[in-house]
Amino acid sequence: MEHTTFSPLLLSLKVAGVSTVIVFLTGMLLARLLARRSFPGKGVLEALFLLPLVLPPTVVGFGLLVLFGKNGIIGKWLLALFDLQVVFTWVGAVIASVVVSFPLMYQSAAAAFASIDQKLEQAAKTMGASAWKVFWTITFPLAWPGLLAGLLLSFARALGEFGATLMLAGNIPGRTDTLPVAIYSAVVAGRMEDAAFWVVIIVALGFSMMMWLNWWNGRRLRRFTEER
């Protein structure tokens, strides 16, 4: 294991962290905007949001490559305006993670917002609260358990993202070899010990996150049911 460094772990945490912040904010915002609104094409739009969930990651990766490649619609534009090249960079890994984990956040947030009794928000409004105050004092705290579940799922999904990342960001040691990519290349190169090392780390991370979420949900449930 002489070549093993922690760089895949740090890179993975960086990519998943940035991706989760983006996904949390956009997923929450879009879910809030679309909740309780109906317009022609809403079904199509929502199906489009959830599409990455049912597509093979390689298909997502292919699509992103076409969009963000040097000659892609967005890639060309980014290159011309910002001199930014996302293919084979960690930014590419972030984009791949965002696209595959967005559906999880969107679904969790949409369900969380839909579960809130509309009368609570209406009551707040009649008491003079602005739309902004209603959101931060009523909607957000009541939706928080669902939003947090979405956040953790998105983070876990981003941490485990492999297919689309490999296609868009490649496997450049020290630059785009996130944990799952590092595991794959270690196995291909016959470095089973390296692979096992990373596997243990990623399993421990995922397991402790889910354990914590379960514990937190249980505690919350007790708080709302005790002392009746």
Binding site: D117, K119, L120, Q122, A123, A124, K125, T126, G128, A129, S130, I138, P141, L142, F224
Partner: peptide, 18 residues
Amino acid sequence: PQQRQVGYLFQEYALFPH
């Protein structure tokens, strides 16, 4: 609604549970 100064007692009270 914020500017109407209307007090509204909802049927199931709509107290904020949190």
